[in-house]
Each structure stands twice: as structure tokens, then as C-alpha cells.
């Protein structure tokens, strides 16, 4: 599995198709994150942005090989499900690195205070909350990408449209772990209290595991 993930990650890095989602994310951060702004607000914004970016990275990873190359790797790896899982994990890993780096930068440059700058916010719990919220969004983004791309949706148009729509819904629908985690950070910022989103993370992990398992199983039947 390590060799497979390494192959997929190398493919992603060399293909340079990661550039578009990463640049979009950097632009999104440049617009919304300023030095000296309240830390919890900025962390919520940073986490929320990772959801569509992860979905995009997953889409890149599962479509970056021509079918013949995919067949060659699937035969060597012992089936398409394993090869597909490696692609999803490579995307998840890259998104995790990006989200962690963004969270670290936000923690370093933001003002550790509530929205009205009256209450101090302790940085370690704020950092933990930010990382967990980012993890929630990354996992749900991966689930979105896994369900809205190959093997469930093959056409490019439908796949992109579904990815955008589901990513948006995952951020705004009540009950979505990503929405719960981000809202927890932003509303906590008003009073300077840190809500560490443990339950949303568990929910997001369960959703992502189910989505990845379904997508991988289906690859052997639908390509």
C-alpha cells in the first residue's frame, strides 16, 4: 500500500494538477485572513475553505491516470479497489498537509482574542480546535470527492457540478459535521470560548470511511 500511495502522490506532484486547487485556496486565504484578526474566526474560515479544495484534490487524484495505466497498476496491486484507495489516501494526505500548514500559519499571525478583542483566547486549545475543524472539513471534502467522481459519476460535467453542489451543501446544511465544527469556532469567537469539535470529527470520519469504502468497492465493477 505504501508503494501505491507513493506512486499516486508522485503522480499528483509531478502532474502539477494540484496547482489550481492550492492556488485557489491561497487566494481564498489571502482574501479572508489578515494578520492580527481574531484567531478563532480565521481558523473557522481556513477550515471551511479546505472542504471544496480537498474534494478537488480527490477528483484530480482519481482521474489522473489514463485507463490503461490504471489497469496495469490495478493488476499489480491486486485489484482496482486497492489502487483506488491509494489514490484517495494520497489526495487525503496532501489535503491534510495543506490544511495543517494553513492552520499553523493562521495561529502564528492571528490575534489570540475574541471577535471584539476583549477576551484572551488560549492558543493551544484554539490550535487543537482549528486542527480538528480542518480535519472535519478535509474528511468531508474527501467523501464529497469520492462520491462525486469515478466510479460513481463518470461524466466530467456531472461530476464537477455534483462536486461543487455537494461541497457547498456539506458546508451549509444543518447537521453536517463540517458546518458544526466551523460554526463552533466562529460562534465561540464571539465570547472567546474554544469549542473543540470532537463529535463532528467522529461523524466526519464515519462519513468519509463509508464514502471511501463504497467508492473503492464499486471500482471493480464500474471502473
Amino acid at each position: 500500500m505504501t508503494a501505491l500511495i507513493r506512486y499516486q502522490a508522485d503522480l499528483l506532484v509531478r502532474s502539477q494538477r494540484w496547482l489550481a486547487p492550492v492556488l485557489l485556496y491561497l487566494a481564498f486565504l489571502a482574501v479572508g485572513v489578515r494578520s492580527g484578526e481574531p484567531v478563532l474566526d480565521s481558523l473557522g474560515y481556513t477550515a471551511a475553505g479546505m472542504l471544496p479544495v480537498t474534494a478537488w484534490l480527490v477528483r484530480v487524484c482519481v482521474t489522473q491516470e489514463p485507463p490503461a495505466a490504471r489497469a496495469v497498476v490495478a493488476a499489480a496491486a491486486g485489484g482496482q479497489p486497492r489502487a483506488h484507495l491509494a489514490a484517495l489516501l494520497a489526495a487525503l494526505g496532501c489535503a491534510g498537509l495543506l490544511g495543517t500548514a494553513a492552520t499553523a500559519v493562521v495561529l502564528a499571525i492571528s490575534d489570540p482574542a475574541s471577535t471584539d478583542h476583549s477576551v484572551r483566547v488560549p492558543l493551544p486549545p484554539a490550535g487543537a480546535a482549528g486542527l480538528l475543524a480542518t480535519a472535519c472539513c478535509v474528511l468531508l471534502g474527501a467523501a464529497t470527492g469520492a462520491l462525486c467522481g469515478r466510479p460513481l459519476l463518470h461524466g466530467r460535467g456531472w461530476s464537477v457540478a455534483a462536486t461543487v453542489l455537494v461541497a457547498l451543501l456539506a458546508l451549509v446544511t444543518a447537521g453536517s459535521p463540517a458546518k458544526a465544527a466551523v460554526t463552533g469556532l466562529v460562534s465561540g469567537s464571539l465570547t472567546g470560548t474554544v469549542h473543540v469539535p470532537v463529535l463532528p470529527l467522529l461523524g466526519a470520519a464515519a462519513v468519509a470511511a463509508a464514502a471511501v469504502a463504497l467508492a473503492c468497492r464499486l471500482t471493480a465493477m464500474r471502473g
Binding site: 489497469a71 490495478a74 491486486g78 485489484g79 471502473g223
Partner: peptide, 8 residues
């Protein structure tokens, strides 16, 4: 493809 284990 079936023999090679690519498809089920």
C-alpha cells in the same frame, strides 16, 4: 481483465 484481477 477478469483473469488479471482488474475487474470483478
Amino acid at each position: 481483465r477478469l483473469l488479471a484481477g482488474i475487474d470483478a
